[in-house]
């Protein structure tokens, strides 16, 4: 066990956990930030996606000891009032079915648009390939990303 000071959603947060603990579980169990979801634990489904210094990162395989003072942004920190253009586009297209994977989808999509404000269909598919939606909302996710890219 060791103490770590993490920079999460613009706030310093202290946790005492073992070095290999993935950020996913630090967020969920220790900091009660449960918007980031567990789906597979092996970085194959994307439900646990957060931003690490703005880069979409699977938090289920990101050990707390590897983070240092890099900035972590979770779905809770994406916008203050839930009005990030990607969140607004998600609502406009009414993307969600069960909604469980959507925070990960939104975090991946946001990172994509930060780097590439007008992605093509192929670029969207490439960036979103790591995020599974079991309900099958893929066509709406793509539509929402395009809508957000226009705003």
């Amino acid at each position: 066990m060791a103490k770590y000071t993490l920079n999460i959603n613009g706030k310093k947060q202290e946790v005492e956990v073992s070095a290999e603990t993935p950020i996913l579980w630090v967020l969920r169990n220790h900091l009660k930030l449960v918007g980031t979801k567990y789906g597979c634990g092996i970085a194959q489904c994307g439900s646990c996606t957060v931003h690490l210094n703005g880069v979409a990162t699977r938090s289920c395989m990101l050990p707390v000891s590897a983070v240092g003072n890099q900035e972590i942004t979770t779905i809770e920190g994406l916008s203050e009032h839930g009005d990030h253009p990607v969140q607004k586009a998600w609502l406009e297209v009414d993307v969600a079915q069960c909604g469980y994977c959507q925070s990960g989808q939104i975090m991946t999509a946001t990172a994509l648009l930060n780097n590439n404000p007008s992605p093509t269909d192929e670029e969207i598919e490439g960036a979103m390939n790591g995020n599974i939606c079991r309900c099958g909302t893929y066509t709406r996710i793509k539509k929402a990303i395009k809508l957000a890219s226009e705003s």
Partner: peptide, 20 residues
């Protein structure tokens, strides 16, 4: 629109696994 849409896209604790 889905009445839970806003809570979903902002990561609110809606699911069983979020129960604390």
């Amino acid at each position: 629109k889905n009445v839970k849409g806003k809570e979903i896209v902002t990561g609110k604790p809606l699911f069983g696994v979020d129960y604390m």
